[in-house]
Simulated scan of single mutants.
Amino acid sequence: MITTFEPAEPVAAPAFTPERTQSILEHASRAVGLDHAGAQLLRHHTNAVYRLVSAPVVVKIDRPCQGRSPVDVVALVRWLQARQVPVVGLAPVRQPMEIGGSAITFWRYLPQFREITAPDLAAPLSMLHSLRTRPPQWLPARHLAGTFTRIAQSIAASRILTSEDRALLRAERARLAARAAEISFVLPPGLIHGDAHHRNMLWDQATGRGVLCDWESAAYGHPEWDLVTLEVHCRRFAHPAAEYEKFCHAYGFDIRTWPGYSWLRDLRELRMITTNAYKSAPDTPCAREVLRRIAALRAGIPSRWNIL
């Protein structure tokens, strides 16, 4: 049975701006002997990602969290590398570090010459899901219960939601929670990526294969979560349907044929909507996209999403 929890109180949205992360980048780079001058901002939403021009290094700055992050990403990646799971390599500097509540990690820069497609993820995810030994560290082990909790926290803490939006999202959470005990998973539980999709993989030109990245959501859980995450991304972000079919063939399982698919699909989409509602500042393109998704949910209309 999956037990779900409401947060005791809303979680305050931390300040996470390019001005703040630029300052963190400067201090972190100096601490490991790297030059941050001219660094290129690649992404600033879930986290901040900078590419250094002085070295083939990417610096990743996570959003501030209350307390220590549940995943020691550096230790996990080193453990996965020892087991031949294809992952983006760490830069050879002392890490991780923490500045102002943000975890900072340094990664090998991989220039990209081709787009990642769904079939590229099949072999790495299959290797990950087939691991039967646990890393020598604690990882979240109650993944679905944690998902319901995080959804509730994000709804409470969002700065862009109206009272009607909150009511709708809470009702959808309650609907899904009421059915949680009925869901029977069929794949062996184990280590999951937690956020497996195209943008969390890069192409490694030297090895001629895709390598997984962004391990902050790693957990012990049901592989079905990773599979439905990719399915949602393929469908909602208009990737060619044939690519997902090829992924299913290569991986050896089509999540859409599993009886619990529609429930897990709706839960995954709700998590994506509410997480982005929490992370988005008012009156921004990200906020407008989240509100558009909520409007489609309210109307019961299938819609394409724009990537955030």
Rank of each mutant, 00 (worst) to 15 (best):
A91N: 10
N47V: 01
I116E: 03
H129A: 09
P259E: 11
A141I: 02
P140C: 11
R292C: 02
R134T: 14
G221N: 00
R170C: 14
G38E: 04
W258I: 01
I61F: 04
G38T: 02
R175W: 11
G221H: 06
D195F: 05
S69D: 12
P70V: 07
L291N: 11
G33L: 09
T17L: 05
R256N: 02
V58H: 00
L110F: 02
T162G: 12
F247T: 02
L131T: 03
I104Q: 03
P285N: 10
D195Y: 01
Q81Y: 04
H239W: 14
L308S: 03
I61E: 07
L202C: 08
E115V: 05
V59Y: 04
D226T: 03
A250P: 01
V228H: 08
V71M: 04
R199S: 01
L139A: 09
L110D: 04
T105A: 03
T149R: 14
Y251H: 01
R265A: 11
A31K: 13
A13L: 13
E19G: 15
L161T: 06
A152T: 01
G194F: 02
I99R: 00
A103V: 15
H249S: 12
D266M: 09
K246Y: 10
E224C: 03
D214R: 00
H193K: 06
L230Q: 01
T229Q: 09
L270Q: 04
L131R: 06
T229E: 07
A123H: 08
I160T: 04
L144D: 00
G33F: 00
L161F: 07
E19M: 11
P70K: 12
W215T: 04
V58K: 03
A55S: 09
L270F: 02
A250E: 12
L34W: 10
L267F: 10
A242T: 10
Q153N: 11
R132T: 14
A82Q: 14
V53M: 14
W258E: 07
L76W: 08
I99K: 05
G260E: 11
L144R: 09
I155F: 05
P64T: 01
R235P: 00
E172M: 15
L291V: 02
H249E: 14
M127T: 12
R78T: 08
